[in-house]
Design a binder for these strands. Sequence first.
DNA 1: GCGAAATACGAGCATACGCTCACTTTCCAC
DNA 2: GTGGAAAGTGAGCGTATGCTCGTATTTCGC
Lengths: 246, 246
Amino acid sequence: MGQKSKPSVRKAPVQSRSRMTVDAILQATAHILTRQGYDALTTNHVAGRAGVSVGSLYQYFPNKEALLLALSRRHMNDIEATIDDALAQAPEGQSFPDLVRSMIDAIIAAHLIDPPLHSALSERVPHQGDQDWRVAFDERVRVKVGAILKAHRSDLGVKNIELATYIVVRSVEACVHDAYRHCGPSLRSGDLADEVTRLVVNYLAASGPAGPLNRRRIAPPPLRRRGAGTGAVFGRLATTHRGRSR
Amino acid sequence: MGQKSKPSVRKAPVQSRSRMTVDAILQATAHILTRQGYDALTTNHVAGRAGVSVGSLYQYFPNKEALLLALSRRHMNDIEATIDDALAQAPEGQSFPDLVRSMIDAIIAAHLIDPPLHSALSERVPHQGDQDWRVAFDERVRVKVGAILKAHRSDLGVKNIELATYIVVRSVEACVHDAYRHCGPSLRSGDLADEVTRLVVNYLAASGPAGPLNRRRIAPPPLRRRGAGTGAVFGRLATTHRGRSR
DNA sequence: GCGAAATACGAGCATACGCTCACTTTCCAC
DNA sequence: GTGGAAAGTGAGCGTATGCTCGTATTTCGC
């Protein structure tokens, strides 16, 4: 399946002609990735769709992976910029809940830039070590959200800020990610933003072990190993998709 | 790159010898997938690692994809069984918070069966239409959690149960998934379970638009399109990883 | 207009990978 | 012990795909 050249530096486009070419290539990459999937993403196919030759493609991208990385990076820049813009124009002396709401609105807006592309990229872009943009992005988000929580520490019932940051970032991302696919109406009506805001604010506002509950300590269930049974989740609810392996 | 045979049915192992073979193949698949990644997962490599010939592999699996699907299914069965077991032995008249805690403990335990495999599978297993086990699994979870929420409806401040279910399922999964990688200590100490429980309980317990907050309505930020700037997330915090595209 | 640099082209090479098939070995019922 | 079925083997076929390279075309400063 061909060779894999090392990430040698390729020519940067200087004339407007070549900038058009690079743009067409990335656009074609996005198109194929979202419409036909990762398996259909071959360099020849991308070049064809972009209306250029493979040779031109390899003049600007050292290999196929670079295509994905460039696309991913461009998409992330858009997302960053969206969130940045939104927060920059948020009023100064906002209450904490309002601040949270602003951020969630911004995050939702960012995810609406190109949902299918976003999904495809988060699933398929190789995120192995090196200079992974997603890791760096996550880290930046984590740091900033942590800073916000620290700044409002006195208003919040949070002991372990690191952990709370993790919980909040993960939850919000999870609820918003792919929301366009799983709950479009709630997304458009603003109900989703309402709920996620409540999720975050109520979690952070509550002090003590847990708000309206007095729990007994329960030992966590023991670890299981493979092959110990084939019971359904939560005690056999759905009967479909339950058959022999292979 | 070879041909792709249609998902023809293959021989099922009847002798114990062949059952060993199938097991070795799946084990090798898991090993290669977790240690060397998806790209190293070639049928020849799997067969070699399993100590059998490719021919034997193709006697039980129609194609490479079937390998992943079988592995995924086996792993999911383990997860289902773990959760199932844990909940089956939960006391009857449990309070809602304790019930939530039991479930979260169970989910955490399920994710500790084989974390690296779990990560690899959720990232790389093709989940395109047909009879996708993950979709079916998610659906089962959604239905059951929804049922629990409905059962406790009177205790909770939830209007849209569908949406609340979505929020809860997504959040919990997100916080627990990969937790072994991002916050191991909190996971082992039980702090993570504490926090996630609080997240869920406080969200569900709160009635009205939002607990301790009286929000003003804010218009969500406008959508942005590509190329409108390269601002940092949340106003330029991190200075690393910020350079020219491509 | 000229020449050099930038850009574009695309046939084809090298290779790795999925999978087959003709054959051998092992198991087991009788 | 024997026959047939199940299981196992691995060289190698067909092919898709990543990528190169020699050549043609366009751009642009002078």
